[in-house]
Nucleic acid binder design. Structure first.
Lengths: 336, 336
DNA sequence: GTGCGACGTCGTAGATGGTGACCACCCGTG
DNA sequence: CACGGGTGGTCACCATCTACGACGTCGCAC
């Protein structure tokens, strides 16, 4: 591997001058600069970021730790982060914690060990100590999608409670009365807030919140499927006439369960899901969803991180983005 | 940030001894080792991977450069890579080249600069020089999904030609005669091989390959949509009765175009897509696809990379995995 | 019991590649 | 000739690893 010294020798200057040419924040005689540039090209020199990072005590890498790369919600967000990061001169490395706190811990340790410039994380765990570690080490963190209690960082969330409320209220408006909820894991703020929104909408309509109509699952397709199956099995006497599913993959799972069992949607059971679903227009019936501005969540998070790197001591910013109900066929009550 | 010297001082030993305890491949007096471990715990020491990477001239990071994170095909593959990498002691960082050769170049430069241990790449460009750079620098590369001509690396592909052939032949078997093809970018091996398979199936059935029924698009949803629109517009006199779409997102796009225009699938135009599509069972009609073993592609690629790191001089391995036709409703000819 | 050699363990010091503060030098100008 | 601004070289430093050498201990032989 060719080093800066090889370049210096080849160009007949000192290594420091090569470094100056490479970084460009100090003036160098154009003649020498030219010789250096030639030497770099001829030798095929590429600077060693590892050595550079060690000396400068900083890197240009951002770690983005998402809880499920296979969920289109997160990949769209990543695109938003990337676009901002690249234009700010940073590179994004994506880490998939797979809803697994242990993997998440490992990636945080790696981010710390590699002295990454910053971290954007959608926490898979409600534990706060790993993130605390990052902050103690002076590594800026932006928390997205999921709130982390008891810790003060820049945050970008969406209005989960309100989104769930309008989604559920829409079902109420349509005349459904036994509205079930497939909620997420109890320890995730997104899950509890969406469950709260569901409850609020029911109470606002004077409807009871029946525990028999609420299931907690894991935000995965399989979990949604099983929750739906359990809702149908356990309420055979008085089945739900509608379901509010707290994320996209669980909505899919619930749909698959109903298709498999021949439950007609929406005439027997209507459904509204949280999170947009790719090609929702092709699914029959088309799915009513509470859409989040996923790309925008990523973009804002990246902007916050860039700003924090510029001024580390500013007060944490909390951004809450709005959701929007997109009404399609799956939630429309058949007119008798 | 606490360094190995701080630990050494605290434990009353030399930094070298701390290093030995940390790495564990040299014997150290258990008493000293214990003191070191205590000091590490008390001070909250975390070793600086940057310095370590510099000194050892190696890292434990793999760069996985995919051409589109938003395509479920790639994310599933990434999971396969991850699972192997983690169990082999490596961490995976995911880079999204977004089908953009320039971004790809940047990420390769970053992988090189950061001296990553290895790279798994699904090339967005047919240019070979960037990958050549990696190889010259001694960084092992595994190419996946797309062939890179004129370069010798470990490779994991699927049998694109055969997959396309059985997909198209299935349409022929169903009695369709004007079978169009929405092909991918001309410079991607996956695209040309699938187009070849399409042609082969037609010729085997004694059908002509009509250029008016072939469109090249960009493997994106939008591209599939536009290609379908163009196929319908330009062949208004004698429209295609079936379409073979060369990847998942373009299949979706083509479907959306047909839904929008009220073209009935499969009675007016049937469709078969390459690549599985998530929740294909929920789409109406359900989609016939040529499925690839995506997770397995990732797993095998990771295994090859791990093996290459162990023995860098072994001959390159080429793995070709089979595809399988999954027949659903979108390709079934209505019986008159 | 003493001396010597072997072995095991630890510390010292140099190396890894690059950066930047500091200093010396050159040249132009007053 | 003195002064100063601009340039380039020297060298210390970033945090860690490891080759080498030193030292202590133990065993064995005389």
């Amino acid at each position: 591997m060719v080093t800066i010294y090889d370049v210096a020798r080849h160009a007949g200057v000192s290594a420091a001058t090569v470094s100056r040419v490479l970084n460009g924040h100090v003036k160098v005689d154009p003649v020498l600069a030219g010789r250096v540039a030639d030497a770099v090209a001829q030798l095929g020199y590429r600077r060693n970021a590892v050595a550079r990072n060690l000396r400068t005590r900083q890197t240009t890498l951002w770690a983005v730790i998402v809880s499920d790369v296979e969920n289109p919600f997160f990949t769209s967000m990543v695109r938003g982060i990337e676009d901002v990061a690249l234009s700010a001169g940073y590179s994004v490395v994506l880490c998939n914690s797979d809803e697994n706190p242990e993997k998440e811990s490992n990636y945080i340790a790696a981010a710390l060990a590699e002295r990454m410039a910053g971290v954007v994380i959608s926490p898979s765990s409600h534990r706060v100590d790993d993130v605390e570690l990052l902050l103690q080490a002076g590594c800026p963190v932006v928390v997205i999608d999921r709130e982390l209690a008891g810790i003060s960082t820049d945050t970008v969330l969406v209005d989960n409670e309100h989104g769930a409320q309008i989604g559920t209220a829409h079902l109420v408006d349509q005349g459904f009365r036994r509205i079930a909820c497939i909620a997420g894991p109890r320890w995730l703020s997104t899950a509890t807030q969406r469950l709260d929104g569901y409850g609020k909408a029911l109470r606002a309509a004077g409807l009871p919140v029946d525990p028999a109509l609420v299931r907690h699952a894991d935000f995965r397709e399989r979990g949604g499927y099983e929750a739906m199956a359990s809702l149908l099995d356990d309420n055979a006497a008085a089945p739900p006439d509608a379901v509010f599913a707290a994320n996209n993959l669980m909505t899919i799972g619930a749909m698959e369960c109903m298709v498999e069992r021949g439950v007609a949607v929406p005439s027997e059971v209507a459904i509204v899901g949280f999170d947009a679903i790719p090609w929702a227009d092709l699914i029959r019936p088309t799915l009513t969803t509470v859409a989040q501005p996923t790309y925008e969540v990523g973009r804002r998070a990246a902007q916050l991180l860039a700003k924090r790197l510029a001024s580390p001591t500013a007060d944490p910013t909390h951004v809450v983005l709005p959701t929007a109900l997109q009404i399609r066929a799956s939630s429309i009550r058949a007119t008798d």
